[in-house]
């Protein structure tokens, strides 16, 4: 019995380790390449350690001679802008859907459920035409607007608010608290872990999104991180793939670091929401 448990544990470690190597390999390759001198990038399969540390020049090129920093800044603006509007509109609406009776509630929730199956690519064409007509292409607004609506957030927060104890709400109402106060001072603070988990979803999705920025953005000044990488790849590296990989590492880093910091909270938040 003991030996069987031991064997199982060894086996599971083995599987997890092999998987981990496969998961990590591209990252290791990316980091190794990012410190390699340009002339050594290709044809170095069998001597993975660079002959000369070229990390400084590669990262310097990515940071100072490319559009990558600008793209990252744009990414931050877009992600935070989207998240702010998403939370400001979805939280009260989700609370209303969960706890208040109002005309049209059923229809609205039905639409939310329907919306869950509609990816951005579906309304993209008409939205693009409308933005073009309004002369708003290639603006931050165009980048953010379609994502102000988050049916996923509405659904998630509604599920959460449904579990919020009714007695507390009643007590608060008896104390003379208005619904507005109840949402922002009672319900939302209780939902913080769910909000955290949702924020991770939202930021990861919009930092990395390619489809929509590819359509509405044309200038370097509005490039988002994926567009920054594409432009860097095509024209700006001048064939230096070391610098390209440095740029890729820089663009990947913020989310990875953020996840490392917020991991526990994220998993707890997931558990607390309807996603369990």
């Amino acid at each position: 019995m003991r030996s069987r448990a031991f064997l199982a544990s060894v086996l599971s470690h083995l599987v997890l380790l092999i998987g981990a190597v496969l998961m990590l390999a591209p990252f290791v390759w990316m980091l190794l390449t990012s410190i390699r001198p340009a002339e050594e990038v290709f044809g170095a399969v069998f001597d993975p350690i660079p002959s000369r540390f070229a990390g400084f020049e590669n990262y310097a090129q990515a940071l100072f001679a490319s559009n990558v920093p600008r793209a990252m800044l744009n990414g931050a603006v877009v992600c935070l802008g989207i998240l702010a509007v998403q939370l400001a509109t979805a939280l009260p609406a989700a609370y209303a859907l969960a706890r208040l009776r109002f005309p049209g509630r059923g229809v609205l929730f039905g639409l939310v459920l329907f919306g869950l199956t509609v990816p951005i690519q579906v309304p993209a064409l008409p939205l693009y035409l409308a933005l073009a007509k309004a002369g708003l292409l290639d603006t931050f607004f165009a980048l953010m607007f379609p994502f102000f609506l988050t049916v996923f957030g509405l659904f998630l927060f509604r599920q959460f608010f449904r579990t919020y104890p009714e007695e507390i709400l009643q007590a608060a109402r008896l104390d003379g608290m208005g619904e507005f106060e109840i949402v922002w001072r009672l319900a939302v603070p209780a939902a913080l872990p769910a909000i955290g988990a949702f924020s991770v979803f939202s930021i990861v999705a919009h930092w990395n999104d390619l489809y929509w920025p590819l359509i509405v953005v044309t200038s370097r000044e509005r490039a988002t991180p994926p567009l920054g990488i594409l432009a860097f790849r095509d024209a700006e590296t001048g064939g230096n793939y070391g610098a390209l990989m440095a740029g890729a590492a820089l663009i990947t880093a913020p989310l990875v670091l953020a996840f490392l910091v917020a991991r526990r909270g994220f998993v707890r938040g997931l558990t607390m929401t309807g996603l369990k």
Partner: peptide, 29 residues
């Protein structure tokens, strides 16, 4: 372009605008 730069292709045909990119890829090889 990558393979040409490592000496893995004899001749390629491309835009003259890529001269800088291809020169850098080749390096001193």
């Amino acid at each position: 372009r990558q393979q040409f730069a490592t000496g893995g292709i004899g001749i390629i045909f491309d835009s003259p605008a890529r001269l800088a990119v291809i020169s850098n890829l080749v390096g001193g090889r």
